[in-house]
Nucleic acid binder design. Structure first.
Length: 829
RNA sequence: GCGAAAGUGGCGGAAUCGGUAGACGCGCGGGCCUUAGGAGCCCGUGGGGCAACCCGUGGGGGUUCGAAUCCCCCCUUUCGCACCA
């Protein structure tokens, strides 16, 4: 039925809907079944000649099910995958579930159901929802991190890193909730209190923990960022997280000969270092404390230890601290300076000790004021000198030069930094060093729901790795897996599991009872996907060589630091062990935006989570997909509101009608348009160009707008097959079920996903007639339709002849004419 | 405080190698069709003015024939980090 004459003759039921009206539910059910039957989304992994690994961040299968934010993320990635498939690549689009971790465990405890029972239910629900969205996922390669067939290899990865010397055990501070009797992650500590016990203060405890020494790779992780094809925002976040800082380590000696090493980025200010501050946990503190000062020092250290890690860092920043009673010699001035301890110095950064320069550091200034310590100016800006008093710390003085620094006075401070460092180094009292903010990765969790760390402790042999052939170390089925009062992992209660013979000497030994961090599960899952059906290897060499590194990875910036950094680290480590042929796992990464609701991030606690099911049911997956993509720029996200979704539905209805009309026309009629209705053909080429470029660059909202414009134009003309078929292919990544049905309506028997993405002729993709803007003195005074490529003289003549323009140019001669081809003529009088 | 991104109609947003501001969609107004219409179709829709025109891209300066776009200052929002020495 032709558009414009769509009124039905029948009455009563749906009087205005033609009999063949678009019925999303029917169409989507039909194609989901067909895809399944035909294996449309199966990828021939070994046989592919132009592989494209299209990765999206696998979800944590929460009990609530999929939410709109997930759908937004997956659909945007799916569009890339489908687009590249239509462009002729063999696209592998796998998906899986990241189901270990404290969230699952806590939720299981809350509802009183074992996670081993809960998780499969959640996964089943998720999988159904995901299928309903129309993703091009090859489910044959699904992975589940909680499956022993998967975590066997997670444990294997641990053993490889252990072998490489990148896994070490050391004591470290953790957040401890006295009520939960367990450790908490930093994000579970809210304002110093436990998230589950708002009236219980969290403390810190020292525990033995396994660490991956990611800091050894800090510089490489940073260097590769410069050339990575990654979203700018993600690269910046990672670079900041690594936090490279160039400075020097300087040595202050005590009369007893103890060398206290401090890290500073401002060696130029060493003459102004009037005291030292050590972190309260610093190993030298006890030794340096005089008997007289010991009660105060001990008391202060105890108070700091009682504080949790979070409030220690973000809480009240009033400066506190105590004097140790000892002094050390400033290597530049030779004078003795007092040694203090204060909680504003952190043990985990630098050397855990600083030289305090109150004249040029705000924190030191504040502390010196409070403790009545001397403040000396050693850098002065223009017009100031060594005698100019300091009302506040002056950190970075433009054009500042050294003062009160015998031997260096008058030097610009940036130069002095280098000179002083070098001079002190020559005396063995310093060296230039680079420091990183990045910490080693603590992977130990004193919890139940995770892969056991595959290590055995033997009194004779010490720490023994579980032999690879004994993997996996299966997580025992514990009825009661709650953490108990001991502070020891729940696994320690599984007696029969815990006690094992030593793999080395056979004597009784004990298993490691900590499980590993979930971030380890997800740090290598992309390696597993192509080999998900293999039990003999973590990942197959040939397949990995063919499919990795990942061609395109799309995900949220909430994982910019931890997940992406850990994945890069594990990849580099495996590369260095000779187990991978590449150093970086993700060739291209794009961060999608966040979908917010009423201006706030969706979260259960806020109660503003939008469930996609109702929308899919009411509007269909295709309309919902397109609507989410049309909300705004994909890489920025946007506010979810359902006002406007009908616009997408109307658009699809129009395409449906166009398809019906075009199906009546003869095939291959493009030539006819070249002679006759050329404008539509030109517009088609332009549309193909816009949609191609926009889809490639994730500008989905404008790609959809371009298709809408084209459809509006087609409705005013005659929709032939040659004009409509390319549109259906353009639409396939966005509305896959719908496009399949349209493709079939047009008489094709195969999947539209096996069609070719339409090409465009750049010469045809521009209009023949263009509108020139005529300006007089920069103000728009008229418009003229002229043919493309009109020469300057012709255009100016036409402009000057225009009566509307004449009124402003007057009789005088133009002083100047600016001509922009095909766009504008500006006459200056 | 540091770092990054962004401020455009009633709303979501287009347009940033300087060159028609407001594409596309929602909403709104008018009309057609209709027993009816939250359906569909057509027209209109930044503000002011009868009009010629004038004013308009967070605010203020500047460069330019011409600025949403470039430069300087300020304000606001979002995100990341945060006593990092």
């Amino acid at each position: 039925m032709a558009p414009g004459r769509r009124k039905s003759l029948c009455f009563n039921t749906m009087p205005d809907r033609p009999n063949d009206a678009y019925d999303p539910q029917a169409v989507e059910r039909k194609w989901e079944r067909r895809w399944e039957e035909r294996g449309t989304h199966h990828t021939d992994l070994p046989g592919a000649t132009r592989p494209y690994f299209n990765l999206m961040m696998f979800p944590y299968p929460s009990a609530e099910g999929l939410h709109v934010g997930n759908v937004f993320a997956f659909v945007g990635a799916d569009i890339q995958g489908r687009y590249h498939r239509l462009k002729g690549r063999q696209v592998f689009e796998p998906l899986g579930f990241d189901a270990f971790g404290i969230h699952s465990e806590n939720f299981a405890i809350k509802v009183g159901t074992h996670p081993a029972e809960l998780i499969p239910r959640n996964i089943a629900r998720f999988r159904e929802q995901l299928k309903r969205i129309g993703l091009m996922v090859d489910w044959r390669y699904e992975v589940q991190t909680t499956d022993p067939r998967y975590y066997k290899w997670t444990q294997w990865i641990f053993l490889q890193l252990l072998r490489a010397g990148l896994a070490v055990k050391r004591r470290a501070a953790v957040n401890w909730c006295p009520a939960c009797k367990t450790v908490l992650a930093n994000e579970q500590v809210i304002g110093g209190y436990c998230e589950r016990h708002p009236d219980v203060k969290v403390e810190q405890r020292m525990l033995d923990q396994w660490f991956f020494t990611i800091t050894k790779y800090a510089q490489r992780l940073l260097d590769h960022l410069e050339t990575a094809d990654w979203s700018h925002s993600t690269r910046t976040i990672q670079a900041n997280w690594i936090g490279r800082s160039e400075g020097a380590e300087l040595v202050f000696e005590t009369p007893a000969g103890k060398r206290i090493t401090v890290f500073t980025t401002r060696a130029d200010t060493v003459f102004g270092a009037t005291y030292l501050v050590l972190a309260p946990e610093h190993p030298l503190v006890s030794e340096l404390t005089t008997n007289e000062r010991r009660p105060d020092v001990t008391d202060y250290r105890r108070r700091v230890a009682a504080m949790d890690l979070v409030s220690r860092k973000v809480g009240d920043k009033t400066k506190t601290g105590v004097f140790t009673g000892s002094y050390a010699r400033n290597p530049a001035t030779g004078k003795a300076v007092p040694i203090w301890i204060a909680d504003y110095v952190l043990m985990e950064y630098g050397t855990g000790a600083i030289m305090a320069v109150p004249g040029h550091d705000e924190r030191d200034f504040e502390f010196a004021r409070a403790m009545k310590l001397p403040i000396v100016r050693v850098v002065a800006g223009p017009g100031h000198d060594g005698g100019t008093p300091l009302a506040a710390a002056e950190p970075e003085i433009p054009d500042g030069r050294l003062v009160n620094s015998p031997g260096y006075d008058g030097l610009p401070w940036e130069d002095a930094k280098r000179r002083i460092t070098a001079d002190l180094a020559a005396k063995g009292l310093g060296k230039a060093v680079v420091n990183y903010r990045l910490h080693d990765w603590c992977i130990s969790r004193q919890r139940y729901w995770g892969p056991p760390i595959p290590v055995i402790y033997c009194d004779d042999c010490g720490t023994v790795p579980v032999p690879e052939q004994d993997l996996p170390v299966v997580l025992p089925a514990l009825e009661d897996f709650r953490p108990d009062d001991s502070g020891v992992s729940p696994l320690a209660r599984a007696e029969s599991w815990y006690r094992v013979p030593c793999p080395g000497c056979g004597k009784p030994a004990r298993r490691e009872t900590d499980v590993s961090d979930t971030f380890l599960d997800s740090a290598w899952y992309f390696l597993r996907y192509p080999s998900a059906d293999r039990d003999d290897v973590a990942y197959d060499g040939a397949l990995t060589g063919k499919w990795l590194p990942v061609t395109s990875y799309i995900g949220g910036n909430e994982h910019a630091v931890l997940h992406l950094m850990y994945s890069r680290f594990v990849t580099m480590a495996l590369h260095d062990l000779g187990l991978l042929g590449f150093e970086e796992p993700f060739t291209r990464f794009r961060a999608h935006g966040t979908i917010v609701k009423d201006g706030a991030k969706m979260s259960k606690s806020r109660g503003n989570v939008v469930n996609p099911d109702a929308y899919v049911e009411q509007w269909g997956a295709d309309t919902f997909r397109m609507y989410l993509m049309f909300l705004g720029p994909y890489q920025e996200g946007g506010d979810f509101r359902d006002a406007g979704i009908s616009g997408i539905r109307r658009f699809l209805d129009k395409v449906w009608l166009l398809t019906g009309a075009a199906a009546q026309t003869a095939p291959g009629a493009e030539q006819a348009h070249r002679d006759g209705a050329g404008d539509l053909l030109r517009m088609m080429h332009r549309t193909v160009q816009r949609v191609t470029e926009d889809t490639e660059s994730l500008a989905y909202n404008t790609a959809i707008a371009a298709m809408m414009e084209y459809v509006n134009a087609l409705r005013d003309g005659a929709p032939t097959r040659a004009l409509v078929e390319p549109l259906v292919v353009l639409l396939a990544p966005y509305a896959p079920h719908f496009a399949e049905e349209c493709w079939e309506r047009l008489g094709h028997t195969g999947s539209v996903m096996d069609a070719a993405w339409p090409g465009f002729d750049p010469a045809l993709a521009v209009a023949e007639q263009v509108e020139f803007v005529i300006q007089v003195n920069g103000k728009v005074r008229g418009r003229l339709r002229l043919s493309r490529g009109t020469a300057q003289e012709t255009a100016v003549q036409a402009a000057l002849a225009d009566p509307g323009v004449r009124r402003f140019t007057g009789e005088g001669k133009p002083r100047k004419v600016i001509f922009v081809p095909d766009r504008l003529v500006n006459i200056v009088v």
